[in-house]
Design a protein around this nucleic acid. Structure first.
Length: 562
RNA sequence: CGGCCCGUAGCUCAGUGGAUAGAGCGACUGCCUUCUAAGCAGUGGGUCGGAGGUUCGAAUCCUCCCGGGCCGGCCA
């Protein structure tokens, strides 16, 4: 594909007192396609060149025209203080569609990440607590970033940093011994959750003390405590694996907090040796002597460790193990300070790689049926969405063979897409009405668009033509499709750079919008002449391909019928 | 008290230096004997929280203020 900006740089710079880098910063895409495909604003040159910007634009347009239009461009025109450039639409269509169909599933991918490693810490649910809608965010954002980086050639390491250690297990053991029934490993996650909640609802101080003692016994390797803990852990993992299977989420490592037990002393020793810690009231702390960072507690006065200890050990271990170029923590925004403290501690310890660590924060979820006083379980949400989809499909597409399977794909896709379609940092307003509305900018909208495109290709019933005339794709709707398809590779790159999957989700909405607009206005199968049908079939297939590629990055299925 | 995040249409959100600020939901109007109407086309709806400042140009950058949320040593 032609890189139009790249072509434009020398063509513009040679006529101006600017170098190519300066020109590159100014080139933009006009707000309205009628104005052109690229634009160069001349305001900034006015002072330096001593003439009004419209005059500069006019002279520049004339000079470029006299020089011969740059490769791939069809027109150059001064409009006020802007020089607007129009590309040769047929050539662009041939380029873009050729690239999409030629690379197929690989369209949009790249190899700029080759030789580089990104470690992504995501999902990381707490053992003995139900997998709530709150865990969905870290899981799907992390999963999307994992696939996006892989698509760009990175070696990605997905780590599920399970919350499987800590004082909450002391509480759980205390509660279980008091109120629990049956064996630890036979507890359902719901049983465990109830014990945990009960512990927190009526807790005399002596129980808190008891819980701390059990936690200490765990840390000291007490077999009775560890047996109970293992039972709880196994029960939880079973549920987590079931949910990851539904969501299509995978990990390369399940090294949770307990994995670092034998590495905690070493981590603490390294921190002490580096001189960044001090003793305070029997505890070990890092005092940043900074109002913003405050104090970081690394070891409690009773000698027990904290999540901070485990996070420090984990960071050091991950560096030794992976020598990453990026380490992404897909963790809720409320933990921003904690992670800033971790990163600063690493810096003070002389870890030159400290700035490769990044907190990929996200807002938390509000409005979870507070009326009922219960948190919303992810599985319930997925099941309700699936049921609703199934009802809709029984009505709209009763002949569909595998309704159960497709309902699952669309129902789950709706939930996942909804989560990924806003900037991570924003709080997420969970509402049944919103999550179960499949109209407009939703996952089902994108999937539906994809299914309709597939339907056309099915009716066509032949291989997608290898030869076609791109010049026939000249309507505004078709041109809009081509322009949108062209952007996919850069969207993926930006999503990786900013760790923002929503850029991909929003882009897919855009692809769907231009595709639907085209579909509505123009016939494909009975377009009139064979050449036009062939060209439009190619366009339909390219749109379909990009939707598939994009949805797969987000972990959303693309059923061919729905 | 200190720090971080958010504030754009009735609601949910895009847009982080350029041309009249855009979508979706909800409301209202049209479009299914035609490739799936989970769709398309259109109408109405905005002091971009406020005030200063930088700039030829600010929703976007800086300062202050207001409102909401979160965090701030023995929880995670």
């Amino acid at each position: 594909m032609i890189n139009y900006r790249q072509v434009l740089l020398p063509a513009i710079a040679m006529h101006l007192p600017l170098d190519e880098a300066q020109v590159a910063e100014l080139i933009e895409i006009p707000p309205n396609p009628d104005m052109g495909d690229f634009a160069f604003p001349c305001f900034r040159l006015s002072k330096e060149m001593g003439k009004p910007s419209p005059a500069i634009a006019k002279d520049l347009a004339a000079a470029i025209t006299a020089e011969g239009l740059p490769t791939g461009f069809g027109a150059v025109e001064a409009v006020g203080p802007f020089v607007n450039f129009r590309v040769d639409a047929a050539r662009r269509a041939a380029d873009v569609l050729g690239a999409v169909l030629g690379k197929a599933a690989d369209y949009g991918t790249g190899n700029e990440g080759a030789g580089k490693t990104v470690v992504i810490d995501y999902s990381s649910p707490n053992i003995a607590k139900p997998f709530g809608i709150g865990h969905l965010r870290s899981t799907v954002i992390g999963g999307a970033l994992y696939r996006i980086h892989k698509a760009l050639g990175w070696k990605a390491v997905g780590i599920n940093h399970l919350g499987d250690w800590g004082t909450q297990f002391g509480k759980l053991i205390t509660a279980f011994l008091l109120w629990g029934e049956g064996k630890p490993e036979e507890q359902s996650i719901d049983d465990l959750y109830k014990l945990y909640v009960r512990f927190h609802t009526d807790t005399p101080p002596e129980l808190e003390e008891e819980a701390r003692r059990w936690h200490k016994r765990m840390e000291d390797g007490d077999e009775e405590a560890l047996t109970l803990w293992r039972g709880f852990r196994d029960a939880s993992l079973e549920e987590f694996r079931r949910i990851y299977a539904i969501l299509g989420i995978e990990f390369d490592s399940w090294a949770g907090e307990s994995f670092y037990l034998d590495k905690l002393d070493g981590a603490i020793e390294r921190a002490i040796a580096a001189g960044v810690t001090k003793e305070d009231a029997g505890a070990l702390i890092v005092d940043f002597e900074d109002d913003a960072l405050g104090v970081w507690l690394l070891r409690k006065s009773d000698g027990a460790t904290l999540y901070s200890t485990r996070d420090l050990a984990a960071a050091l271990y991950r560096w030794d193990e992976y020598h990453f170029d990026k380490l992404l923590y897909v963790v809720g925004a409320p933990q921003a300070r904690h992670l800033a403290q971790l990163f600063e501690t690493l810096r003070r310890m002389g870890m030159a790689w400290w700035d490769r660590c990044e907190h990929v924060g996200f807002g938390h979820i509000h409005g979870m049926s507070s009326r009922q006083g219960t948190l919303v379980f992810l599985e319930d949400v997925l099941n309700r969405a699936t049921e609703l989809v199934s009802q809709v499909m029984a009505e709209r597409n009763p002949d569909l063979d595998d309704r159960d399977e497709v309902s699952r794909q669309v129902g789950v896709g709706a939930i996942v897409f909804a989560d990924l379609s806003r900037r991570r940092i924003r709080d997420y307003n969970f509402s049944w009405d919103e999550i179960l509305n499949f109209d407009g900018e939703t996952g089902p909208y994108v999937q539906y668009t994809h299914a309709r495109l597939c339907s056309i290709l099915r009716k066509w019933g032949q291989p997608v033509p290898g030869a076609y005339d791109p010049a026939l794709l000249g309507t505004p709707e078709e041109a809009a499709c081509v322009r949108t398809l062209e952007r996919f590779p850069e969207v993926i790159r930006q999503a990786a750079d900013e760790a923002e999957p929503h850029l991909v989700a929003n882009y897919l909405i855009e692809v769907s919008t231009v595709a639907n607009s085209f579909y509505q206005r123009h016939r494909v199968m009975d377009a009139g002449d064979d050449a036009l049908v062939a060209s439009r079939i190619v366009l339909v297939d390219a749109l379909r391909q990009v939707l598939v590629n994009g949805l797969s990055l987000l972990g959303v299925a693309a059923p061919e019928r729905m």
